[in-house]
Simulated scan of single mutants.
Amino acid sequence: MARSEEWGKCKDCKWFQIEPGASPENNTMGLCIEETLQDIRLRVSGNSGCNRFMAGEVAHAEGSSAAPPRAKAVR
């Protein structure tokens, strides 16, 4: 299990990519663009979280909230 200081919510993570103009809220859906997870095209909510968390500004790209996500990672 991850230590708490390595874990965080997607809405506060630099690997969370959402639609242009969207705000990173609990219910906002987006794409996880963490480098080792990009091939999975993992769609997550702002309230999701994991131990690959890295605090920072979220990214924005059209198609990030689609199911399945159509956007490419912008970082």
Rank of each mutant, 00 (worst) to 15 (best):
Q38R: 15
I33H: 05
F53R: 07
N26D: 09
D39S: 08
C32P: 06
S4L: 14
E62N: 09
R70M: 08
G21R: 13
T36W: 12
S45T: 01
G49K: 10
R75A: 00
R3K: 15
I18A: 04
A2E: 11
Q38C: 04
A73F: 05
R3T: 10
P24G: 07
S64I: 05
G8D: 10
L42C: 11
S64H: 08
A73E: 11
T28C: 01
P69Y: 04
K14Q: 15
Q38V: 11
A2I: 08
C32K: 01
P20F: 12
I33V: 15
E35C: 01
M1H: 08
S64W: 01
S64Q: 05
G46I: 09
S45A: 13
N47D: 09
A2F: 14
E57V: 02
T28K: 03
A66M: 08
E35A: 10
S23W: 06
M54V: 04
S23D: 13
A61G: 03
A61M: 08
S4I: 13
P68A: 12
W15H: 14
F16Q: 07
R3M: 12
E62Q: 15
A61W: 02
D39C: 01
L42E: 06
E57G: 00
N27S: 06
F16D: 03
F53G: 01
W7Y: 15
A22T: 07
E19R: 09
E19L: 06
F53V: 02
D39G: 11
G8M: 04
I40L: 14
R43H: 09
S48Y: 13
M1E: 14
W7D: 07
R3W: 15
M29C: 02
G49H: 14
P20G: 05
E5D: 15
E35M: 09
A61L: 04
F53C: 03
R75N: 05
R75Q: 07
I33D: 05
K9M: 13
P68K: 09
Q38M: 10
R70G: 02
Q38L: 14
R75E: 03
E62T: 15
R70F: 01
P20E: 11
G30Q: 06
E19W: 04
